[in-house]
Structure formats: structure tokens, C-alpha cells
Write a protein that binds this DNA or RNA. Structure first.
Lengths: 213, 213
DNA sequence: CCTTGTGAAAACTTTCACAGCT
DNA sequence: AGCTGTGAAAGTTTTCACAAGG
């Protein structure tokens, strides 16, 4: 377990989340053991890659058998830091924001939306599911008071920069940015993950045209 | 321009979409030339990487000056296959689907939602913006009649597999899959791009914990 | 003088092949 | 017999350093 010091690439982390997906599926089916080639079949990765990844994090399978689903799930949850509840705020209570709050995957991954924020007076005070929409002007005070570490940013792109610049980096350590704004990976000690939905379609468009390997 | 035969990695394509983003920003500011270090500043990539990428696709800049914004934009649009309008269908008219249809980035990238599909009788016949919601049972007929090449899949995860399996691969060539189901990259000649929003948060969670390089 | 284009080097990632356990 | 764990090899990507050219 020396991954604190070593540089893990994003590709590996992304694969870990895929393994977790396979584990959840298999557990639902009532299985207790899973081999690297089982995972390979579901995720479309080489068994050797999977074994390397897991070995790197000190996950020990049993030779001749495979990996214990229960144990490996716990192990991966811990590695990914989703082994205990994390409070998250949503900023931008539009359709995308609403979709995020209602997404079943977030609860499964132990994320809890502590509140949503918006600048539309018509939305402020209302609920999305169980999550209250508050005034975006109170965002920083809320983050400070509740010790929120993660922000999901789903405002219109032009508003993104101002919100991020105003943020107190002492508290928010991670941002999931869905605006088209590209922020640097790390900014004031915060980790920012940029996902632009339109850009993903552009990637598909290319792959369809040129038949990506 | 030999990228038809060569294997371009997804990382390169993703970067191309970033360059396009920079180009759009700079054009808005009234600039006509852009250097690799300008792009570097906005995207957080090394200038040498940017030049390699662009050279690979035969984009020629002017030594001592940089790249012509107008020309490079056209060039990249063409490479990505977004130089002309493409019809897309949305399947799953929930919050995420609505967000996709209303996302300004799609129009900018020349995508047009020809229709949305859902199985909720209360939604069928209504509109999202200008896009009509039709019965999901008519999906395949519609795709065939209108020659739709791309599908955006935003149904609840358990419904995803059935829809994809029923699809006529002669028509749909690309799927942007937002369910947690992991499909193989290529299936029956279709290219499938999997994005699970919860998985992206898991990645952030890891990065926050272990300080990704 | 400035910035592109590019071969060569360095760094990183994936795959292979087989030793090591159960 | 079967599957993991792993060092070494192959393959890929990024970075460097500098020649070429406006």
C-alpha cells in the first residue's frame, strides 16, 4: 500500500471504479468470489492489467481461486475514499444539477448532497428531493459552517469562474466541474475534475468517423 | 492527414476538443492568431504536446507566429466530424436528458436533437424546448426513417441493456451512454462511450485523498 | 526574434510469460 | 488444476532540444 507516495494515473483510478462496478453486479448475483478474467469479461480489460492494478494497491486475491468480493469491495472503497459518507454541495440547481442530486449512483458511492445553491429567487427555498435550495450568496458561509469538502458545479459556464475564484480553498478540496470552462487540475490546493458533456459528444463523433481502435 | 489508418488514442482526441475550446474563447476576444503556449496556458498542457498533436493531423501553423484561429478551428471541426449538422436522438427524457437537450454546447458542436424518447405516457407528446418526446416503442422505426446515427442514452441503468440490444446497428453508429452499465467500446460496429457521473465523483474522491499528480 | 515541426530520449503503461500458492 | 503476483519486454506517450523558417 504505497500509493500515497507513488503517482497513480487517472486511467488506473478510472479502472478501479470499473472493478467496483463489477463487484457490485456480482454481489447482487450472490457470488462471493471473482477472478480477474471474470472482471475482464465485464469491463473489457486484460486480466493481467486487472491483476497489476489490484496488486499495486496491495489487494491480495487467493491463488487458484480469485478475489473475495466482500473484501475487495471494502478495500477498493477505502482506496477511493468512499468508505464513509461525504457531504457535497451542488451549485446550479438546473436540470443537470437536479439530475445529479437524483442520481442513484451518488448514494451508492456514499455521497450526500448537504444543500443545493442557485441565484434564481424562484428556486431558493424549494426542494429537490430532500435537498434544499439555498441562495448562492450564502455558499461560502455554508461550506465553512458545515465543513463541505466537495462541490459539484452545474451552473451556466459563464458563471463558473466567479464561483470558483470566490471559494475558500481551506474547505473545498475537490470540484466536479460540468461547465465548459477548463480549470487547471490543481488550483489553490483544490483538485478540479472537468467534464464537458458536449466535448464527450465531440469525442464520439471523431470515433465514429475514424473508427478508434 | 494519415489518421484514418493510424491509431489515435482517446487522450489525443480529448485534447483536440480542448484546443477547440481555446480557439472559440480566443475568437470571441477578437484574436486571429494563437500560439501553442497560449493554448498551453488555458488548457494546462505542455506546448510541445500541443504542437505534436496538431502536426500529427497536418495542421500547419506559421513559424514565428502561431496558428490561424479561423483556419485551425475549421480544420479541427473537420477532424472531429462536427463540421456539419448531425441528428441525434435522446432516449430517456428525465432530468439528465432534459439537461442534455438544453445544453448550449451541443448546438455549438453542430448536434441537433431530432427527437426524445421515453416510456412515460405522461411525457409522450410533450416538448423539451423544441424537441418532441415520442414513445420509446417507436425508437427503431424513427431511427430508420430519419437515418439517425447517434444516440444519447439517459434512461435508468437497468433499462439500458435492453435498448442497446434492440438497436439496429445498421443505423446507429455511436452511443453516448450515461447509465452505469459498462458496454464494450465497440459492439456490432457501434462505438459506445460510457460516462457514469457517480464514477467521476469517485475519481475526485480518490484524487482528493491521495493528491494525484 | 519568435514560434513551429520533429527526431531522439525519457517516462510511463500495458502485455507477456511463468514462478508461486492454494 | 487454476488463478494470482511479478519481473522483464514490448509498446505507447510525453518531453526535450534544436533545426527550420517566417
Amino acid at each position: 500500500m504505497d500509493f500515497y507516495s507513488s503517482n497513480i494515473s487517472e486511467a488506473v483510478i478510472r479502472r478501479l471504479t470499473n472493478y467496483l462496478h463489477c463487484l457490485r453486479l456480482s454481489r447482487k448475483k450472490g457470488r462471493t468470489l471473482l477472478t480477474s478474467s471474470d472482471i475482464s469479461g465485464t469491463c473489457g480489460l486484460k486480466p493481467s492489467t486487472i491483476r497489476k492494478d489490484l496488486a499495486q494497491f496491495g489487494a491480495y486475491g487467493v491463488r487458484g481461486q480469485g478475489y473475495d468480493i466482500e473484501e475487495l469491495t471494502k478495500h477498493l472503497n477505502k482506496i477511493l475514499g468512499i468508505d464513509r459518507k461525504k457531504d457535497v454541495v451542488l451549485v446550479g440547481a438546473g436540470n443537470l444539477g437536479t439530475a445529479m442530486i437524483k442520481h442513484p449512483g451518488f448514494m451508492r458511492a456514499n455521497f450526500r448532497f448537504a444543500a443545493a445553491f442557485d441565484n434564481d429567487p424562484g428556486k431558493i427555498g424549494t426542494l429537490i428531493g430532500d435537498t434544499e435550495i439555498l441562495d448562492v450568496r450564502d455558499l461560502n458561509a455554508f461550506i465553512k459552517k458545515k465543513h463541505i469538502g466537495i462541490m459539484v458545479l452545474t451552473v451556466p459556464s459563464p458563471e463558473a469562474a466567479a464561483i470558483v475564484d470566490d471559494l475558500d480553498p481551506a474547505h473545498v478540496r475537490g470540484i466536479l466541474n460540468f461547465t465548459s470552462e477548463i480549470f487547471p487540475r490543481k488550483k489553490h490546493g483544490m483538485y478540479i475534475h472537468n467534464i464537458d458533456l458536449a466535448r464527450e459528444l465531440e469525442i464520439i463523433s471523431f470515433c465514429m468517423k475514424h473508427c478508434l481502435s
